[in-house]
Design a protein around this nucleic acid. Structure first.
Lengths: 236, 236
DNA sequence: ATCCTCAAGATTGTATACAATAATGGCCAA
DNA sequence: TTGGCCATTATTGTATACAATCTTGAGGAT
């Protein structure tokens, strides 16, 4: 595996570490890069036409976000979340998202509802489009909804925590998702906005939790796969 | 300002980036390094007898934790949280710590109570000791209590979020704290453990919120100081 | 005296060179 | 043929060199 499935370099002159990080992150979140994929410093560097220095910085940052795991003397790989990690990611979302909704609710007025509805419209449009690029954009759009709500909390720290959780969720879905669609039920986002518009925060929280449950229900988080129990993977 | 107030280098051979990061973080959290202090790559490097490469990696990681702010082409500085950031840090703690307590409660049995009591004993011992080193250790111990509880939630992500919040709290207290003691009321930790021992989670949450309120009450988070309004800082 | 300009110095940004470690594949022995 | 051992190669870890940018302070004009 060489550079083939990395996003093509921005031919724009003067790339910096942050742009590399963002590009790789997008590729991971949109599942163009599969979990476990090796991210060789030289390969990535030549894609972006930069030295390993900048690549290392980008990979280090991504490692802090939990999207990349770097193993000493072995290199960086797209993270491969364990079942336990996957469970913790969703457990944390279940704990945090209602809290965020309650924080955001007082700040959600007409303008904010409008902004959310615009995101929903984008999602809808992508849902009706076909082809891989639309699927990828849909994945991202679905996450953007959750992030937009977090942003409305006005708390930058909560927002950052959600950034991380949403991004890592994408990896978990890539690994353990069963149905092809896998991304959030777009309809549920709509219901949440409806509840928010009516200022019914309790309903919004309830719907949010159900929504997270639905995402998680589509995952196959039984043990195994984890390398150790290969036998019953073949046993059938 | 040169290297004087940086912790002395580990003369142990073979330091790596993580050790540098940890050492600097400890120095920041224990307030041996004041907010705003410049962390010159060359200076830090010569302290640890490593090249700038490793120092940069450490500073980058600390920047991601919010303990250091790196300004392009200007260098790295111990973070200087704004009033807004300070408020958000404590707002987030108020939201998160009760959630964490509820998550941790089912996992807290005899052994865990014992562990927490041990931490309290350490705190108490330090409180009765005098001298700057004891004060520093006390600051750290006080944070360790909150982190221990977070660890008992069994959720590594929550724990990491708390790691960040506790560390940044220390910076906020250093900047905006008024009373000299400034660190957590040790007594309140004790009450929380008492409530946990009685399985009275509601009380524990209530006490935790009060505790956070008390810490925040010791802060002077009025605007100003923020550099722009220097005049009324001298106006008295 | 004050302000502006600009050159010298210092510091960070990036690339490259070298060292250390891990991965690969061939060779030999059983 | 198979399994283990060692040399070779590739990749990461760290230091250093050079480029770009900022900071500082002296000098001169007003």
């Amino acid at each position: 595996m060489t550079s083939d499935n990395l996003p093509q370099a921005e031919s724009a002159i003067d790339i910096d570490a942050q742009q590399i990080r963002d590009t790789i992150r997008d590729a991971i979140v949109e599942r163009r890069l599969a979990p476990g994929t090796k991210l060789s410093e030289t390969d990535v560097g030549s894609l972006f036409n930069v030295s390993r220095t900048l690549v290392r910085a980008a990979l280090q940052a991504l490692s802090y976000e939990g999207l990349v795991s770097v193993e000493k003397n072995r290199g960086a790989f797209v993270a491969y979340p364990s079942v336990t990690e996957a469970q913790q990611i969703f457990a944390t979302r279940r704990l945090l998202e209602p809290v965020i909704l309650r924080e955001a609710a007082p700040n959600i007025g007409k303008a904010e509802i409008k902004e959310l509805r615009k995101l929903l419209a984008d999602e809808e449009r992508l849902t009706n489009q076909r082809g891989a690029p639309a699927r990828r954009a849909e994945i991202k759009a679905s996450g953007d909804f959750h992030l937009a709500v977090a942003g409305m909390s006005g708390n930058a720290i909560l927002k950052r925590f959600m950034d991380e959780l949403v991004a890592r969720s994408s990896l978990v879905i890539a690994l353990y998702g069963q149905s092809v669609i896998s991304s959030c039920g777009h309809h549920e986002h709509q219901q949440i906005v409806d509840a928010l518009e009516k200022q019914d925060i309790e309903a919004a929280c309830r719907l949010m939790l159900q929504h997270i449950d639905h995402i998680e229900a589509d995952l196959d988080l039984r043990p195994a796969r984890k390398g150790s129990d290969l036998k019953d993977a073949f046993q059938r």
